[in-house]
């Protein structure tokens, strides 16, 4: 049924919207990986852009050097980033708060530029990542962007399904227990460092998938695609979505994708210079972040739930 829905959508909307749809799906995955880490297991990461870069590079190298089928390259991206995440998680489990934020921030700044040091990574201009044309049996009118959208949307749906199941399992409960009160959780017999490393590993794996999908939509993997700004916009997206619940991920993802377009329209309305146009999206995003933190700190979805709960309580009384 989902496939049919995707098929209908892909045919109805024009190509730019299809491309934006693919970008939204990529952001949904990236944001959900951060929500899992921060909202559920209570660890901060400012370096998810770097993890995405690891996923993107491993997928591209697997595809270019070893001619591995496209589907498998995404699994490889998940695997390699998860391994990197496990290593990072082992360090992260000993750190908390600002120290962990600092460590991941350093990673976000340092890691992508490492690519400049190694020839096979293609330096600043990066290496191509081509998932190929859509299968011919899908017909002539099935465009490249529709293909991207299908792959990314499907990956997003699978990811969300998997995540929501994991979060409702023992592991999810362990993470939430640890986030609420670490000591209490340990007394209950939860191995906190193992639990934290597991969260980091899983979150990294998902971020790696998002990275591979992102580079699929731009055709190349290069350090400049995984800037600090990307890490921050994912974090912003997570806060806008409501950091403590997966339900709102769409909100953050949609905002991240359409905000530049809105900014563009606004900038053209007021007829401003290029300098304003290119800085307006960042400004709007920042303003939106402040407003969110001030008025709906847990995100719109949680806010809605809290209100609904209040109303229900009132009715009862």
């Amino acid at each position: 049924m989902l496939g049919f829905l995707l098929f209908l959508l892909g045919n109805r909307v024009d190509e730019l919207r299809v491309y934006q749809g693919a970008s939204i799906a990529v952001f949904v995955i990236a944001i959900s990986s951060l929500i899992l880490l921060t909202g559920y297991s209570g660890q901060v990461s400012l370096g998810h852009g770097a993890l995405m870069a690891i996923g993107a590079y491993s997928a591209a190298i697997a595809r270019n050097e070893f001619k591995i089928p496209v589907v498998l390259t995404f699994f490889i991206a998940v695997l390699f980033t998860a391994i990197a995440g496990a290593l990072l998680g082992a360090a992260a489990a000993r750190l908390s708060g600002p120290y962990l934020a600092g460590t991941t921030l350093a990673l976000a700044i340092g890691l992508p530029s490492l690519a400049n040091q190694f020839e096979p990574l293609g330096g600043e201009q990066g290496i191509p990542f081509d998932v190929g044309l859509p299968p011919a049996r899908l017909g002539e009118s099935f465009t490249q962007y529709k293909w991207f959208f299908w792959i990314a949307a499907l990956a997003a749906l699978i990811c969300m399904w998997l995540l929501s199941n994991i979060l409702s399992s023992r592991y999810g409960r362990n993470w939430r227990a640890g986030r609420s009160n670490e000591v209490a959780a340990q007394i209950c017999g939860i191995n906190m460092s193992r639990s934290k490393i597991l969260a980091f590993t899983l979150s990294a794996g998902i971020a790696g998938l998002a990275g591979a999908l992102l580079s699929m939509t731009i055709g190349t993997v290069s350090p400049s695609a995984f800037t600090l700004a990307l890490s921050f916009s994912i974090l912003t997206g997570a806060v806008l979505s409501g950091i403590t619940t997966l339900v709102g991920t769409m909100i953050g993802a949609v905002i991240l994708v359409i905000l530049p377009e809105i900014a563009d329209v606004v900038a053209h309305q007021i007829g401003s210079s290029e300098r304003v146009t290119s800085n307006l999206p960042g400004f709007l995003l920042g303003a939106l972040l402040i407003v969110t933190v001030l008025f709906v700190p847990n995100g719109p979805v949680e806010q809605h739930h809290a209100r609904a709960a209040k109303r229900a309580a009132k009715k009862k009384s």
Partner: peptide
């Protein structure tokens, strides 16, 4: 929520 946004998108 996923389906809703996809539908709006449509």
């Amino acid at each position: 929520s996923v389906s809703a946004v996809l539908a709006v998108f449509g």
